[in-house]
């Protein structure tokens, strides 16, 4: 098995999940509490990666990161190389691709927090930020865990965006799913099967952890 691809994928998924906590929490917060009349448009944009073919998303990200776009030029001026076909570019593409898988669980759990608790917090002198960290966030732990786990697992298994944005450079942009594709192309089914199994196992474990943590009734243990 290609351990290099494996660790690269884990590193990518962890980075993306962490970035999505930082980016996703404010976006989810805004989506939940904003009364802006065009908010639904922003919600639709955030949800786009769910329905968009990864190649379409990947194509636009590639264009946006390329040396002809302002962002790409800025990055090139700063670092001396382009974002396309680099690990950093992969991270950016993956963040966009997994955004709804983090934002939607976050927003759903924020919305489930009783507004009266938020009102109570502010009458007790807490600012909005304090209310967020002392009331909303602690009561949204399950949504938080779900969002992090889903964006982690989703990034682990992504293919189309990675192929478009990252190419297939061993140790830089070759992730597990691309490795499997390569093996299959080379009729190396045994190796593909091995890697696929590991990916399947990881996804299953991550999802099991999510559902286990979100169990409401811990009085009933599965093994009793």
């Amino acid at each position: 098995m290609d351990w290099q691809a494996f660790w690269l994928t884990i590193r990518l998924a962890l980075l993306v999940a962490a970035a999505l906590v930082v980016i996703g929490l404010p976006i989810a917060c805004w989506i939940t509490y904003s009364r802006w009349r065009w908010k639904f448009l922003a919600e639709a944009v955030v949800a786009l990666p769910i329905v968009l073919p990864p190649t379409v998303l990947g194509f636009y990200v590639l264009v946006a990161l390329g040396s002809r776009s302002p962002l790409g030029r800025l990055w090139q001026a700063l670092t001396g190389h382009t974002l396309a076909f680099t690990f950093e570019g992969l991270v950016i593409g993956s963040i966009l691709y997994s955004l709804p898988f983090a934002v939607q669980p976050f927003a759903a759990s924020f919305a489930a927090v009783d507004r009266k608790l938020i009102a109570a917090s502010s009458t007790l002198g807490a600012s909005r930020l304090q209310t967020f960290f002392r009331v909303i966030l602690p009561l949204s732990v399950s949504g938080l865990v779900t969002g992090i786990a889903l964006s982690f697992a989703h990034t682990m298994g992504e293919f189309g965006v990675v192929l478009m944005v990252g190419g297939n450079i061993p140790g830089v942009t070759r992730t597990v799913s691309i490795d499997i594709y390569d093996q299959v192309q080379a009729f190396n089914y045994a190796a593909a099967n091995q890697t696929a199994l590991v990916l399947l196992a990881i996804s299953f474990v991550v999802l099991s952890v999510v559902y286990a943590l979100n169990r409401r009734v811990w009085a009933v243990w599965p093994w009793k």
Partner: peptide
């Protein structure tokens, strides 16, 4: 004046105690 600066004690109908 913002809610948090009014120094008002408010006991809601459903109390709104922080469950956590």
């Amino acid at each position: 004046l913002a809610v948090q600066h009014r120094r008002i004690g408010y006991v809601f109908q459903d109390l709104a105690l922080f469950p956590h």
